[in-house]
């Protein structure tokens, strides 16, 4: 069982992601914007972060950079989930330190498989 933080400003996307992660037996924390995610991070030191890019207050890439450059998060894996699917966006995501970049819309089965792969690595 892992701690999973999901941040997205679209409530309906949160709905599906939360369901999927809970079903895999993870403990799930929900953030509805970048700022909320930043606060939750400090307390729960999640093993996995699923971040949208375009969020109010703090965007996913900034969060990503923060986690990767801060002590206490060495174990944290990051998946960026974004509707931005261009080469340049994917490249930027990896440059910010993401472990995986998944473009929306995604296949739930693939996503769950990749999450498990990441967590067991």
């Amino acid at each position: 069982m892992a701690n999973v933080l999901i941040a997205d400003d679209e409530p309906n996307i949160l709905l599906s992601l939360e369901f999927l992660m809970k079903k895999e037996g993870h403990k799930v924390f929900i953030a509805r914007d970048g700022g909320e995610a930043y606060e939750l991070l400090q307390h729960h030191k999640p093993d996995l972060l699923m971040l949208d890019i375009m969020m109010p207050r703090m965007n996913g890439l900034e969060l990503c950079k923060y986690v990767k450059s801060t002590d206490g998060f060495q174990h944290s894996k990051i998946i960026i989930l974004s509707a931005k699917g261009k080469e340049i966006d994917i490249q930027r995501g990896y440059e910010s330190g993401a472990d995986l970049y998944v473009a929306k819309p995604f296949s739930t089965r693939d996503l769950v498989a990749k999450v498990n792969q990441l967590l067991s690595a």
Partner: peptide
């Protein structure tokens, strides 16, 4: 536009897949 279209499609696809698989 693509971003705006992708967002609802993402929800629709994810939710229907969940219902389909569970």
């Amino acid at each position: 536009i693509t971003h705006e279209i992708r967002t609802p499609i993402t929800s629709i696809r994810a939710l229907t897949e969940i219902l389909h698989d569970n």
